[in-house]
C-alpha cells in the first residue's frame, strides 16, 4: 500500500476531536485516589496534633482559644497555598478526620479561597471524684485493715 495511514486519516475525519471541551463543558473527574483539596471533619478530630507534626511545608496551623467555662475552642486551618498534597496528614490521622478529595479546581483570587478550616470545642475533663490525699488515706486504711486481719489469723492458728 502506498499510503499506509490513509485509512486512519479518513477515519479521523469522522471522529470527535480529542480536545477536552472544558471550560465550555463541565470539568472531567479526576482519577480515583487523586489527592486534591483537603476535607477536614472537626467532629471526629481529637486534637492530637499529629498532622501538624508530619506536615513538611507547615501548611497546618492550630489555634487554641480557651473559653471561660474551661473548654477549649480548637481551630485547625489548612493553607492550600502551602500544601504539597502529599497526603501524609491524612495517613497519620488516627481518627480519619482529614481526607484529600478529588476536587482539583483550586483556583482563586484571594488568600481566603485557599483556606480549609474547621472548629470544634474540646470539653474540659471532669474533675476526679477524690483528691489524691483522700485516695492516699483510703489506701492506708485498707492496708491497716489487711494487716489487722493477718495478725488476727496468725493469733488464731497459734
Amino acid at each position: 500500500m502506498i499510503f499506509p495511514y490513509l485509512g486512519q486519516a479518513i477515519r479521523n475525519l469522522f471522529t470527535k476531536p480529542a480536545t477536552e471541551k472544558f471550560p465550555l463543558a463541565e470539568a472531567p473527574a479526576a482519577q480515583p485516589h487523586y489527592r486534591g483539596r483537603i476535607a477536614y471533619d472537626p467532629s471526629v478530630c481529637v486534637n492530637c496534633g499529629m498532622c501538624q507534626k508530619v506536615c513538611a511545608p507547615q501548611a497546618i496551623s492550630r489555634d487554641i482559644h480557651p473559653l471561660p467555662n474551661g473548654d477549649q475552642e480548637i481551630t485547625l486551618t489548612f493553607d492550600l497555598t502551602s500544601c504539597t498534597f502529599c497526603g501524609t496528614c491524612a495517613d497519620f490521622c488516627a481518627r480519619h478526620a482529614i481526607h484529600l478529595t478529588e476536587d482539583y479546581m483550586i483556583v482563586g483570587t484571594k488568600p481566603e479561597d485557599f483556606l480549609v478550616s474547621g472548629t470544634f470545642t474540646k470539653k474540659k475533663p471532669p474533675a476526679p471524684k477524690f483528691t489524691p490525699e483522700q485516695i492516699a488515706a483510703m489506701k492506708a486504711a485498707a492496708e491497716a485493715k489487711k494487716k489487722a486481719a493477718a495478725e488476727k489469723a496468725a493469733a488464731e492458728t497459734k
Binding site: 477536552e20 470539568a27 486534591g36 482539583y104 483550586i106 483556583v107 482563586g108 485557599f114
Partner: peptide, 16 residues
C-alpha cells in the same frame, strides 16, 4: 491577580 493551587495543578485547573 489569580492563583492556581495544587502541587502541581491539573491542566484543567490551569485553563480555568
Amino acid at each position: 491577580d489569580v492563583s492556581v493551587g495544587g502541587c502541581t495543578p491539573k491542566p484543567e485547573a490551569i485553563v480555568a
